[in-house]
Amino acid sequence: MPLVTAGVVVLDCAEPEKLAAFYKGLLQAEETDASANLVEIRAADGLRLAFRRDANATPPSWPRPENSLQVHLDFLVEDLDAAERRVVELGGRPIEAKDIPGRSEERGCSDPAGHSFTLRLARQRAPKQG
């Protein structure tokens, strides 16, 4: 058994219930734990995210060069347009970033609390030959 196993990605935010609802809708996830200051969800593929209450949380302001990206999530999607529409329906927004190579294969977005993430086109893998 490994000494350390993958845990949960935790995002600080002012309203964890609202942010959990956004990601539950985006990832078709279910809530697995909730308390006054933390909500955790699990997606069908096993990804675990938690949202911790921080009344003083300020979202990162990427892509402005004077601020760091901090952390962001990459989500693999089959249809970029459909995924981006779903983000907007749930209260997120696209982020316009200039000069990103491969722009046609990925799109930057932010959740309602301002955390950035990327929708990345999933590569179709050819079946192994021979």
Results as ranks from 00 to 15, higher is better:
M1E: 03
P2E: 10
V4G: 10
V4Y: 15
G7M: 10
V9S: 15
V9R: 11
V9C: 14
L11N: 03
C13F: 04
P16C: 04
E17A: 15
F22V: 02
K24D: 09
L26V: 06
A29K: 07
E31A: 06
T32K: 15
S35G: 10
S35C: 02
L38G: 03
E40L: 03
R42W: 06
A43G: 08
D45P: 07
L47A: 15
R48E: 09
L49M: 10
F51P: 02
F51G: 02
R52L: 12
R53V: 00
D54P: 00
T58D: 02
P59S: 08
P60K: 00
S61V: 07
R64S: 10
E66Y: 07
L73F: 08
F75C: 06
L76P: 03
L80N: 09
D81R: 15
A83V: 11
E84W: 05
R86N: 09
R86P: 02
V87M: 13
V87I: 07
E89V: 04
E89K: 13
G92Q: 08
R93K: 13
I95L: 15
E96K: 14
I100T: 11
P101L: 02
G102M: 07
G108N: 10
C109G: 10
S110R: 15
D111P: 00
H115K: 03
S116C: 10
T118P: 03
A122Y: 09
R123C: 00
Q124R: 13
A126V: 00
P127Y: 00
K128R: 06
Q129D: 08
G130C: 00
